[in-house]
Write a protein that binds this DNA or RNA. Structure first.
Length: 822
RNA sequence: GCGGGCGUGGCGAAAUUGGCAGACGCGCUGGAUUUAGGUUCCAGUUCCCGCAAGGGAGUGGAGGUUCAAGUCCUCUCGCCCGCACCA
């Protein structure tokens, strides 16, 4: 049916509608959160952005998901906390400073202002009174405070260590920030190893807790993220064994510590291999050997381990297997990692693939000591047998199963004093020193007399100086600022030097969500009572790229804060949702490709409502979305369809009296409500929520001239309410045009009536041998035999039964009849 | 190699508990409105045969369980993501 010609219909003008409400909402405080014991609380949080200067469609997707949920929860009567802030420290600001001669602070604040404007344009429902920017002293003083608490507890410490150095960033990186041997921000730049005095946080003290507490997250966090964290922590149980050094005479000097998960194979160890960086090499090797070892380290840097052939050389020295007393040669091998276990291994070529490859290359003997449970010992193996089995040729341990042997042999080592059961972790302590300007100063003073002295808490914050020359070369820019560096020692008053390293910016984001609970507190990082009310975060939403960076650091911080007594929870977020990426026209968005879909362009061309709604419509939120302009135009058309429908029906005076059409429309309305409500409560498939609203609108178009004034009013009102979480502007406009008052997204969420949602008759699918042959309509609750009888009588079905014998009849209440015929 | 996930029309997808495969949207085709284009409205659109009524095939592939499988089981192929010489 075409649009009635006599009705004035308004064209959908997104810019006019959005501007109108944007102006009216500017100073409204709809989203302010405050403690309220009368309502259940709900803390919904999207990961805070880095203020790069512009929002793109990927951000919009993240916020659109959070916003839909926040608005829904408000409408369901929850007391919602929905804050936003800025991860404002970091290198791009310094790079911009070098490129454009703009101070990092100025550049950052300008970007924040621009992005906040875009945020507001999209009408995301944040409590802006709780906004934080991590580069402000009011915020980062608490980074310093946390650092001091950790320092006091021995959780922050300084050591000289080989660290990852990115030449492009001119700073150190944490292990988590090294991706395939390269810098996480420069995937073409291999990291170098440098020995530097660095500050570390002892995340390894919490390794077991980080692992064990994942049980609490099971079900609420994506399995993939938990798996990645488990993998990253890399807990591995085994045995540490000491091989004493001996060159024929008595054992002398410190032993070589070896870590193995397979002590049951130790009688098959035919050599000991040291990592090329192993400190013992200095003692065991002559000058040319040391040089060879160093060359190995250098050729390994930044390369894919799979591409490097195993190489090594004999040190000329021997070590003694403490179980067998056997003397085995000591080698240096390029495949032995200093960073894992003890940096030294025993090589058991018969039972380890890597050892097999190495030993056969150099003619080192292969000696099998494990036989399969159901077979004999392989005398001359062609490949390593790496499974558990039965121990053989191993003195008193022979004929024990592998697992049992491991337990007994570990205990024996401990009893004899040459080893012990041990657990190693892949995760290392978190290196937080950065030789950069735009970060939190580490609150430490180096005094020639007193050593490393923490800045007293009442002298916090240690403020970042404002005018600093940033050249991007050489050492930390802060070293060039005498008034920052030169201080007096808080202990003895003598001249001293301030620490010039700044903190990794992941410190900032490790606890920011607690600050939102009490953002203006100047006596503490936050009032524990506020946090106790709002925590845990009920729903955290962000990209999966933070699975082992931000998300593991912030879990660690929460546990430390709990141990300090600031919080009661052990985990920050009960539920985590990782949304899929947005790509543009089939290609990953990137600046270099020039295909970044910017948020302001979208607001201009399609409107905020359309842009938000399309990213929710294009795919379920966990999946990748391909942004396509034609797709967005579909949503634009749909919103226009809704808007025109509402406006052309509002002033009508020719409505028919209530009738059958009313029942059909109201039924569809309640079916739609049921579907959307169910999705918000469980799986968030907003794409199907939106498509169900489209179905409703299609029905409205079909029934437009046949429904009563009352039905029209009800349905328009509900349309506005259902669209409110997805498209706040146009739903508010409809709400308003319909004569309703107040903000639509602060109305109670409409409840659906299951009776009204129900069809009059059940549609029964009739199958013959599993093939669809007809449909019949019967009252709900009709008994199975009656269904079968009616189905058999159906004229579409009958031909398929004629001349056949019905051997079985399956009838399912209100659903289906299936005849099995022969 | 280990871990996590995914394969359904021309495209994005839907099918929530084993019960009508392809909802909804894009694109395309046709019609109406329009001087025309665009907009809007209506209809059609998995593939094959057929004017149609209708029939057959069909969810990466091969088997299996079942009255009934996109959904469960076994094997297999392909793709994506994460980790990876971790002793």
């Amino acid at each position: 049916m075409s649009a009635p010609a006599d009705m004035p219909e308004k064209a959908y003008d997104h810019s006019q509608i959005e501007l109108k409400w944007h102006t009216r909402w500017e100073n409204a405080d709809f989203y302010k959160a405050a403690k309220d014991s009368a309502k259940p609380k709900f803390y919904v949080l999207e990961m805070l952005p880095y203020p790069s200067g512009t929002l793109h469609i990927g951000h919009i997707r993240n916020y659109a998901i959070g916003d839909a949920l926040a608005r829904y929860k408000w409408m369901r009567g929850y007391n919602v906390l929905h804050p936003m802030g800025w991860d404002a420290f970091g290198l791009p600001a310094e790079n911009a400073a070098i490129a454009n001669q703009v101070p990092p602070r100025e550049w950052t604040l300008r970007n924040i202002a621009a992005m906040k404007k875009t945020h507001r344009r999209f009408a995301f429902s944040y409590d802006w009174d709780r906004e934080i920017a991590t580069c402000e002293p009011e915020y980062y003083r608490w980074n310093q405070w946390f650092f001091l608490q950790m320092f006091r507890r021995g959780l922050a410490y300084r050591k000289k260590a080989l660290v990852n150095w990115c030449p492009k960033c001119a700073t150190v990186l944490a292990n988590e920030q090294v991706v395939e041997g390269c810098c996480w921000r420069h995937d073409d730049t291999p990291v170098e190893q440098r020995a530097l005095e660095q500050w570390f946080l002892k995340i390894t003290d919490y390794a077991d807790q980080l692992l064990d507490d994942m049980a609490q997250l099971e079900g609420g966090w994506p399995e993939r993220v938990l798996a990645m964290q488990r993998n990253w922590i890399g807990r591995s149980e085994g045995t540490e064994v000491d091989f004493g050094l001996s060159d024929g005479g008595p054992i002398s000097g410190p032993p070589i510590h070896v870590f193995t998960t397979r002590v049951d194979t130790i009688y098959g160890a035919t050599c000991v291999i040291l990592a090329p960086e192993h400190p013992l090499n200095e003692r065991l090797l002559d000058a040319s050997g040391v040089a060879r070892a160093k060359a190995m380290v250098d050729t390994r840097a930044g390369r894919d381990p799979g591409d490097i052939e195993k190489e090594g050389f004999f040190t000329g020295r021997f070590a003694v297997n403490p179980y067998s007393g056997e003397k085995v040669p000591v080698w240096v091998g390029n495949f032995v990692l200093m960073g894992y276990g003890t940096g030294a291994i025993m090589a058991v070529p018969a039972h380890d693939e890597r050892d097999f490859e190495f030993c056969t290359k150099y003619g080192i003997p292969v000696r099998p000591v494990i036989r399969p449970v159901d077979g004999p010992l392989e005398a001359d193996p062609r490949q390593a047998f790496t499974e558990d089995g039965v121990v053989e040729n191993s003195g008193e341990w022979s004929s024990l199963p592998s697992a049992e042997a491991r337990g007994k042999m570990s205990a024996y080592a401990e009893q004899q004093g040459f080893g012990k059961a041990a657990v190693t972790y892949r995760i290392k302590d978190w290196g937080i020193s950065r030789q950069r300007y735009w970060g939190t100063p580490i609150p430490i003073i180096h005094c020639p007399a007193c050593g490393v002295v923490p800045v007293p808490e009442d002298q916090l914050p240690v403020v970042l100086p404002g005018h600093v020359e940033i050249t991007g070369t050489g050492r930390s820019p802060l070293e060039q600022v005498p008034e920052f560096v030169n201080v007096v020692c808080p202990c003895c008053g003598a001249p001293a030097r301030r620490e010039t390293d700044t903190m990794d910016t992941f410190i900032d984001s490790s606890w920011y969500f607690y600050r939102y609970c009490d953002p203006h507190n100047d006596r503490m990082p936050f009032d524990p009572a506020e946090v106790a009310y709002w925590f845990e975060i009920d729903q955290y939403i962000g990209g999966v790229e933070h699975a082992i960076l931000h998300l593991i650091y912030s879990r660690f911080f929460t546990k430390v804060m709990r141990d300090i007594g600031l919080v009661r929870n052990s985990e920050p977020a009960r539920r985590l949702f990782t949304q899929g990426m947005v790509i543009a026209e089939g290609a990953k968005m990137s600046k270099s490709k020039g295909n970044v879909v910017g948020a302001d362009m979208l607001a201009e061309r399609f409107g905020a409502d359309t842009a938000r709604m399309f990213v929710l419509f294009a795919a379920p939120p966990e999946k990748e979305v391909d942004w396509r302009n034609e797709g967005a135009e579909g949503i634009y058309r749909f919103l226009g369809r809704v808007y025109r429908f509402v406006t052309r029906n509002l002033g009508r005076d020719d409505f028919p009296p209530p009738g059958e059409a009313d029942r059909r429309v109201i039924r569809k309305l309640h079916q739609t409500l049921k579907k959307i409500t169910g999705d918000f409560e469980t799986r968030w498939h907003f794409n199907t929520c939106i498509s169900s609203i489209m179905e409703l609108v299609n029905v409205l178009y079909a029934e437009e001239r046949d429904i009563s004034s009352e039905a029209m009013c009800t349905v328009v009102e509900h349309l506005a309410l259902m669209l409110a979480p997805f498209a706040p502007y146009v739903s508010q406009e409809i709400w308003d045009e319909n004569g309703n008052e107040g903000p639509v997204f602060k109305q109670p969420w409409p409840s659906f009536d299951p009776e009204l949602a129900k069809e009059d008759l059940a549609e029964i699918v009739v199958q013959v041998n599993g093939k669809l042959r007809g449909r019949i309509h019967m009252s709900f609750g009709t008994s199975e035999p009656e269904l079968a009888a009616a189905a058999k009588a159906d004229e579409k079905v009958r031909p398929f039964l004629e001349g056949k014998q019905v051997v079985k009849t399956i009838a399912v209440l209100d659903k289906l009849v299936n005849f099995v015929v022969r």
